[in-house]
Simulated assay, not measured.
Amino acid sequence: MLLSVENVSKVFGGNVAVDSVSFSIEKPAFVGIIGRSGAGKSTLLRMVNRLTDASSGAIRFEGRDVLSLGGSAKRAWQSDCAMIFQQFNLVPRMDVVSNVLHGTLNRHSAFATFFNLYPTADIHRAIDILDRLGIAEQAAKRAEALSGGQQQRVAIARALMQDPRIILADEPIASLDPMNAQVVMDALRRIHEEDGRMVVANLHTLDTARRYCDRVIGMRAGRIVFDGTPGQLTTGVARDIYGADASFSESATSTSIEALDANARAMMEEAELL
């Protein structure tokens, strides 16, 4: 078993954010986790990465309980388990290539990091990764000068500099327009297929989960209420995951350009009738 989450819970005060969650991933796959805001998706990923401690349960990678790790072993795990965030978490005034090189922080001394003293081989690798993601020409620019989609690709490049076994992506396209969302999801899918890396992504739209994921896990109120293939993610199942009634419309949460265009046309037609 590659990754196993066993009866993991997280309690904040009197609030149960994640409630006895269990699932396993046997081989590198692209897994999407969906659910409404507050379902526990982000907390779950943060526990896997050890940014947040679990209240109970076990998380095992190749049989080793990562929740028991501390010190250098914990830092090594966080290098193996890279995290990508919705808000990019870049250093805005730092150039792009330096932001990418931050993915090697766990391998270098604090002195070298403070003075940006990176080996030439690491610099060349960072530029190669940026080139792979189609943004090598942005390497010398400040991160804040880039578009949201470009910044998220820089964040992906930083994660790849860690050479991780797992990439965890917490709502990686939630703040992006449809075009950039597609570019970022295409990049993550390509990394999974070409590198054989496991990708686990929290997603907020059904069409994205169906298009890019091999497996979809649905969470509601801290519990897993669905675990299956994209083809099994029917509208009825989606209603149950999101706690919605019969008026639930998938198109309202779509990130596809075609769906958004259709919604815009429908709104214009409705306005013309008023």
Results as ranks from 00 to 15, higher is better:
A246Q: 13
A145G: 03
L176S: 01
D261F: 04
V183M: 06
M161F: 05
V183L: 08
D245C: 12
S147C: 09
A155W: 00
D240F: 12
R158P: 06
R165T: 10
P230G: 01
D195A: 09
E194S: 14
D214W: 00
E250R: 13
G149C: 10
I224N: 03
I191V: 14
Q182A: 13
P230R: 00
A262R: 15
Y212A: 04
Q138R: 15
V200S: 00
L203C: 05
L176F: 07
I173Y: 02
N202H: 07
D245M: 12
L188M: 13
N263W: 01
L188R: 01
A159W: 06
D207L: 09
E193L: 12
Q162D: 02
M161H: 03
A157D: 03
F248C: 11
M179T: 12
H204Q: 11
G196I: 13
A143L: 10
E171R: 05
L176N: 01
I173K: 03
T205D: 14
M185L: 14
A221L: 13
A174P: 07
A201N: 09
A238P: 13
R189K: 14
P230S: 00
S254G: 08
P172H: 12
A157K: 02
S256P: 01
P178G: 04
V199T: 07
G218I: 04
L233Y: 07
S249R: 15
E193I: 07
A136K: 09
L203M: 10
